[in-house]
Design a protein around this nucleic acid. Structure first.
Lengths: 214, 214
DNA sequence: TCTAGATATGAATGTTCGTCAAGTTTGAGT
DNA sequence: ACTCAAACTTGACGAACATTCATATCTAGA
């Protein structure tokens, strides 16, 4: 082994990376505008500058492509939340900030709205991509005596389904946006906090999120 | 007005009632077996013994038909729960029994499983068709000092999304069926109960539900 | 019985997903 | 520099399906 280069990445690998990224970016843009059902595979392929059949070399189905888009969105938002909360002392507060931010983003960001139908896919993507952070916070807060949530995974899964579902209800106008704090309070109750403590945590002053890069 | 008959229901009205009911029954059977996407409008029409176009005289779209099916299922289950709980003294216990029963039915009844994708539609049907009972229980329990849930509608909506979503996770094997009690506990926490009280309520002995008629 | 309006019918339409045979690119070995 | 097999791309195509619409049928009242 005399190779000292980290990885010479040949043209194939480079093209593959480009195509995959271009497809996700294209799909995200079109799905955000027209919804998952409204986006056609042909239009996605055209905007990504590849043939219609090529999409299927990267994603087995339209659904798999949609999942990739949603996961990319979740990962990206997780990182932005981390940037802001890494100075927080109280893990309970990190958790509270996180769930509120997702709720607000899902209901306010136009690009998220169209993706809210298919909530089961979105909730699942959220469980997996944001779970590492959220479950960590839940466990730390439990260890610190702030929460009573030994079964952090279960609480987090319930929260995911509730958050995505309620976002849909808010977008549909069935719940007012002014109720977001009440929703956060109830979700915090699931961690074992009593109503007063949950209300206190949900109404603390919060920092601003950094705007999304790109 | 000399008419004393309650309503003479002519042949048109009778046929329309028959067709609508036959379509919902047919759609429910086929969608339960093959899922909403897997069921074709033609097959639904054939089993209901009407022409393919006739379906559209009763339901604007496949989606609207699916909603009708889900609502019928929810209403039916609500009534069966009422039959069993009308002797309960504690409204908190009625609520606890209700959410557990939906959770168990959704995960154990084969006919519900296939309908769990499209969870947003199902959660919405649940909010509307079971809401009258659940919200009544939440308010009564709050008035009795058992719960702290003045905003019963909001708590109920969160519960609907969480229940349907978690049912999906259980069906997918991501959560064990043995965790149902834990889920119920956390959902009860949202009503303002502390963890100990919620655990107590969720683990009380429960009566059996009557088997479904028909 | 006759007729106008309501309802049912199912073949035709238009759209979309996913497949496939044919063509193109790549890079290792000579 | 050349060859070749493997890997990748392409876009036309088939199959499936929701929905529409022109036509046929039925109903209730005159």
């Amino acid at each position: 082994m005399t190779v000292t280069q980290p990885e010479p990445e040949g043209r194939v690998a480079r093209r593959q990376r480009r195509n995959r990224e271009a497809l996700i970016i294209s799909a995200r843009a079109i799905m955000s505008e027209k919804g998952i059902d409204g986006a056609t595979m042909l239009e996605i392929a055209e905007r990504a500058d590849v043939g219609a059949g090529t999409v299927y070399n990267y994603f087995k189905s339209k659904d798999e492509l949609a999942v990739a888009v949603l996961e990319e969105m979740m990962s990206s938002l997780s990182l932005r939340i981390e940037q802001v909360t890494d100075t927080f002392e109280d893990p309970a507060q990190v958790y509270a900030f996180g769930i509120r931010t997702v709720l607000e983003t899902a209901t306010r960001d136009i690009r998220w709205r169209q993706l809210l139908n298919r909530s089961e896919v979105l909730a699942d993507a959220m469980y997996r991509r944001m779970g590492p952070y959220a479950i960590r916070d839940l466990k730390q807060a439990t260890a610190a005596g702030r929460f009573q949530a030994e079964d952090a995974e279960l609480v987090w899964r319930l929260a995911c389904h509730a958050i995505i579902g309620v976002s849909l209800s808010i977008t549909a106008g069935e719940i007012g946006e002014d109720r977001i704090t009440d929703v956060v309070v109830r979700l915090l109750c699931m961690t074992g906090l009593d109503l007063a403590a949950a209300t206190d945590l949900a109404t603390r002053p919060r920092p601003e999120l950094q705007p999304e890069a790109g």
